[in-house]
């Protein structure tokens, strides 16, 4: 299946937006780990020391935010768009 990966904000430093080919049936969490396996800076930017997606990283599938503490097993489908971005808090 083909998934469009859109790393935005600081995450675009370690991975450029493009479509990736993955085996059918992979979940969001598996796809992110697969990307991180081949890209150490991206892995460090995305995952914490416990190998969980950092709390201030937004993961959106086709525009809908996922709660990665509960929904990392969500299967992706051909043509899905996976957006990733960190956000800031100051004012």
């Amino acid at each position: 299946m083909k998934i469009l990966i859109k790393p935005l904000a600081e995450l675009s430093d370690s991975l450029v937006e493009r479509s990736f080919e993955f085996p059918d049936g992979l979940s969001v969490g598996m796809v992110l780990r697969e990307l991180g396996r081949h890209n150490q800076p991206f892995r460090q930017a995305l995952f914490d020391e416990q190998d969980r997606v950092k709390g201030f990283i937004n993961v959106l599938v086709n525009g809908k935010r996922l709660d990665m503490t509960q929904e990392s097993d969500l299967p992706l489908h051909d043509g899905d768009e996976l957006s990733l971005f960190s956000y800031v808090a100051g004012g």
Partner: peptide, 8 residues
């Protein structure tokens, strides 16, 4: 809906 967590 937009933000999952409170950043440190």
């Amino acid at each position: 809906c937009m933000f999952p967590d409170t950043p440190l």
